[in-house]
Nucleic acid binder design. Sequence first.
DNA 1: CTTGACCTTCCAGCAACTGGAAGCTTTATA
DNA 2: TATAAAGCTTCCAGTTGCTGGAAGGTCAAG
Lengths: 133, 133
Amino acid sequence: MNIGKVAKITNISAKTIRYYDEIGLVTPAARSAAGYRDYDDSDIHILQFVNRARSLNFSIKDCRELLSLYNDKNRASGDVKIIAKTHMDEINRKITELKDMRQTLKTLMDRCQGNDRPECPILHGLAGLTAAN
Amino acid sequence: MNIGKVAKITNISAKTIRYYDEIGLVTPAARSAAGYRDYDDSDIHILQFVNRARSLNFSIKDCRELLSLYNDKNRASGDVKIIAKTHMDEINRKITELKDMRQTLKTLMDRCQGNDRPECPILHGLAGLTAAN
DNA sequence: CTTGACCTTCCAGCAACTGGAAGCTTTATA
DNA sequence: TATAAAGCTTCCAGTTGCTGGAAGGTCAAG
């Protein structure tokens, strides 16, 4: 199957699929005489696996490990769970970080009139002045 | 003031301060005869402004606009608030996205025994199989 | 006067793609 | 069958916001 069709089926851009080939993450089963990438059903399955992992924000490196475990029939599910847990911790860290930012930003915004006058608590806040003023 | 001292005071790495100079975000007041960057108190103030904005995840582009408004005594606070609001929306979007990921990941993890057996709902999930199994 | 700390510029690399150019191959149509 | 359009190839550059490191100039102390 040519890359264009694979792109449509998996909803991954041809560019990205080529990139995954280039970095050795998902390589096509074969190449045609003319050098066209030739993907089979198994490749598509793997691409979809990667796509789901990526949409959960797993890094490419994680995807490699997950794929390797996926292909290892003697794997321990504990190894998979460790990767997932580490990733979960990271997601939680990011959420906390973003919430903190949101809180700070909200505080500044609430004080700002947002009109045509120059007085602006947001800028004051960024400039380091404390709450007051 | 040399870059090393500025780095200590602002808690921004010298590398980053040089980078801000390079992209024209915060340029030193002067250069010594030998070519050393020479920062004054105002520069430090601006660096701290940028540092706070960056720590709220404002992009460099946003920082430029915020700085420009900060320096414009005829600004309208509404213009600042629009930038903040846009950014706030983006933060909220990211939080929502991360929470969705967390939920999906949690569901998969809860089903996984995480032991030394190969059976793994996390991998099943990534492989696209539905909840069951 | 030399050593070491500090400064300079320049180049490379990170993550994970995306865009675009130049140039084949294949397919569809006239 | 000729040709044009669509699809494929590789390669290079750019994105964001730095960070690391090399090669080399400068400055303060002993």
